[in-house]
Amino acid sequence: MIRAEGLVKEFTRPVRRTGPLAGVRSLLTRERVTTRAVDGVSFTVDRGELVGYLGPNGAGKSTTIKMLTGVLVPTAGTVEVDGRVPWRDRTRNARGIGVVFGQRTQLWHDLPLRDSFELVAKLYGLDQPDYQRALGRFTELLDLHEFLDTPVRGLSLGQRMRGDLTAAMLYGPPLLYLDEPTVGLDVVAKARIREFVAETNAVDGTTVVLTTHDLVDVERLCRRVLLIDHGQVLYDGDLAALRRRYVPYRDLVVTLAREDDGPLVAPPGTTVVERPRSARDTARVVVFRFDPAQTPTPAVVAAVTAEHEVVDLDVTDPDLEAVIAEIYSSGRVRA
C-alpha cells in the first residue's frame, strides 16, 4: 500500500537574528539555514495493516505524513502510495486517502456538520444514494445524531473529532492517516475513537497509519510500530517484540503480610527492588525482578511464596511509556 524509500525532506529558512538592531540585520542578511526534517526514511505498509508511527515532537512524523499525503514534495527518495506518487498524482491520491488531524479540523467552520459532509460527498464524487447510506452508517457508528445540524464551531472537541473521522471515511478511502486523533479528548471519547478505528481497520480492511503521543492508542490498536527520531527510523516492527527486546524483565510485586518478616530471600534469577513506601502502605511491598525467558514466572512465584507469607501478588510488564522514553533519550534501539 505504501512504499517509502530513502525519503528526505530539507527545509531552508532565513536565519533569524537576535540582539540589538535584529530587525535591520536580518533585513540585510541573505544567510539561510537548511535543516533536514526527514533523513532517509524507508518502510513499507501492507494493505490492511494498522501501523503506529511514533516519535517525539520535531522527530519528522508530520513531515513524513505530509510527503505520504502529497502535501510536500520530497527533497530526495521515492514514495509510492497504492502505486501512485502522491505529490505528482496528487488529486488521484487525495481521492484514495482519508486524513484526520487532531489539532486542526478539516470541516467547514461556519457550516452545520451535515453540510460539511454533503460538500465532501460532492467534492469526492459520491452518488446521492451512496452518500445517504454512508451518512446513515457513520451517524450510527459514531453516534452523531445529536449534533448533525450544529455548526462545526459549536461542537465539542470529541464531537468534532467524530465529525472529522466521518468526513474522512465518507467516500470509503482504502487508506486512512490519523495524526493525533485522540489529543485532548476525555477517556470515553478516546475509547470511542479507538473503537471506531479498530472497526474500520477490521471490517473495511482500511489501512491505517496512526501518529500519536498517547501510547494507550498504540497498545490498543497497533501490532506494528515505527519509531522515528531526528528524521531517522529507530525501530520498525512488532510492538511486543520491541517490548521484549527492550525491557527483558518482568516484575513480581508482592505485598508481605508483616513488616518484620525477617531477611528477604531473593530466589535464583531474581533481584529485589524495594519500593519506596508511601503513607498509605500498611504492609511491606517488595518487587522481585526477573527475566521470564530465563526464569519462568510460576517458578518465581512459587519460590517467593515458599519463603514469605504473602497477602497479595501481581505480575507486571514495564509499560510502553518507559520503553519509548528510554529509546528517545538514548537515541537508538538496543539490538
Binding site: 532565513p14 535584529a22 530587525g23 535591520v24 536580518s26 533585513l27
Partner: peptide, 12 residues
C-alpha cells in the same frame, strides 16, 4: 511593533 513592522524583508 517597530521590529515586527520591519520583520519581513520583502515587505519593507
Amino acid at each position: 511593533s517597530v521590529r515586527s513592522a520591519l520583520a519581513v524583508r520583502s515587505e519593507v
